[in-house]
Amino acid sequence: MQTKLIPLAAVVAAIAGGAQAQEVVKIGYVGPMSGQSAHLGKDTQNGTRLAIEDLNAKGFKIDGKPVKFVLVAEDDAADPKQATSAAQKLADTKVNGVIGHQTSGTSIPASRIYYNAGIPQISASATSPVYTHQKFNTTFRLVANDNKLGATLGQYAVQKLGAKKIAVIDDRTAYGQGVADEFGKGARKAGGVQIVAREFTNDKATDFNAILTNIRSKNPDLVFFGGMDSVGGPLLRQMKALGIKGKLMGGDGICTEAMPRLAGPTAGDEAIVCAEAGGVAPGQQKKMEEFAARYKQRYNESLQIYAPYAYDAVMTMAQAMADAKSADPKKYLPYLAKVKYAGITGDIAFDAYGDIRDGALTLYTFKGGKRTLIEVVK
């Protein structure tokens, strides 16, 4: 039997054809992988990676052709300058889409770079209204914005917690100041309350003695903090050390599984009331619990807060690519704007700004060192 020789050109063509059949789709992720918020950045990256692994495991196809999703991750250390550098690297790499950034202060400056490059960007956590109100058609988010989060917390503080005298602190970041301002508006709108102090710190501070001493003299029954858990935890410790008895309230930045560890024994039972920009109605709870179990099995640690939203962000982006029959950002971007996707966190669709429609908020407290659900509101 004679062996048939295959010309080298035919071999090269076959290899090239195989490569083309497996299109690579690059999903960028940017968040704080170093610094004080690294635990949250890692959580969001883990959610992004888990979605990519699931898409590859099920042999996701675009226009009937198999594709391979790959993660291209960058660290912005929650720093705006580093964020723009990371965004430019992803743009130069020609990623097909970006999940991130985590904070509003990094998402906003980075968004212009993605817009100029025509790359869709979905943040799983940035809540400043500015982010989606820049007239950039490439910006989307999966959580309610600060207008809703802050206003809802302000009303809840007055109407449900009965707060009469409130002190407000923020960390001067886009997120912290924004949510604090909206909280103040919501509280005043609810009526019958005094904002007895308006103080600020920064997102790397560890000593709050001066501002807390001033606040103590006003005897507030609630202190609102706009910022992240890495500052909120030590802040609560020092509040209690100075004898400030009021509850600490904040947004999703302090509504993390790490907060009791950062606050120590002062977290106590119901010493903190916080809201997560997002949340699932009772009908979605089973999906969320199943995701949390898979996350734990995959990473051997509990999810923090943003991983399920990052997971849904990737899946929503993939759905838009499938609808457009293309992973080319220019081709699937219009489909992303009108996408409908049933995610872990709920039904996903965007309004004209790129904000999530009917964004939910979840109110929590902490008991026995564990985050405990109060209620989901829309």
Rank of each mutant, 00 (worst) to 15 (best):
R371H: 03
G346V: 00
F350V: 01
E257D: 13
V30C: 03
V314I: 04
D347W: 01
N96Q: 09
K240G: 05
A126Q: 04
R298I: 02
K164H: 12
Q159S: 14
D323V: 02
Y29K: 00
G283V: 05
N147S: 15
G17F: 10
V143R: 15
A144N: 09
S85L: 14
K164E: 11
Y115W: 13
Y309P: 00
A91L: 07
A163L: 04
D76Q: 05
P265E: 14
R357A: 05
G279D: 00
L262Y: 14
A151E: 12
Q45V: 01
Q36S: 13
F200W: 14
Y306W: 08
K218F: 01
D54R: 05
D43R: 07
E289K: 11
P80W: 12
K42M: 09
T213A: 15
K296C: 06
V223H: 12
A293L: 10
E276R: 15
A322L: 10
F60P: 06
Y311K: 04
Q22L: 14
P234W: 00
T206L: 09
K65T: 12
Y341K: 07
V70T: 05
S128R: 03
R172K: 15
Q155G: 15
V377L: 09
G64S: 09
Q304L: 00
L373T: 11
P260H: 13
Y131L: 15
F366R: 06
A110R: 01
Q285Y: 12
S111C: 01
T48C: 04
G28C: 00
I254S: 10
D181Q: 13
T152H: 11
D43P: 00
S217F: 02
F291W: 08
K26N: 06
K68A: 08
K325I: 05
N300C: 05
A157P: 01
K4N: 12
K247M: 09
P129Q: 02
T362F: 06
V11K: 15
A157S: 04
Q177N: 15
K81F: 09
V25Y: 04
K26H: 07
M239E: 02
Q88W: 02
S326R: 02
Q177E: 14
T138H: 11
I348F: 07
S125C: 09
G64W: 08
K148D: 11
K148C: 03
K287I: 03
G105Q: 03
D229M: 06
Q238S: 10
G47C: 10
G162P: 10
K189D: 15
S85H: 12
A258N: 14
A327D: 13
A205E: 12
R49D: 12
G253Y: 03
P109S: 04
K240C: 06
K367T: 14
A51F: 04
V11F: 13
A9S: 14
L236V: 11
L303I: 04
F208M: 02
E53D: 15
E289H: 02
G191T: 02
L361Y: 07
A190V: 00
P109D: 05
A157Q: 02
F140H: 04
G31H: 07
T93A: 15
A151C: 07
S111F: 00
V231I: 12
L235A: 03
A281V: 14
Q297G: 11
K247G: 09
L262Q: 11
L149C: 08
F183V: 05
G17L: 10
M317V: 07
T44Y: 13
I62H: 06
K378D: 12
K340R: 14
L50Y: 06
G192Y: 06
F208T: 08
L161M: 12
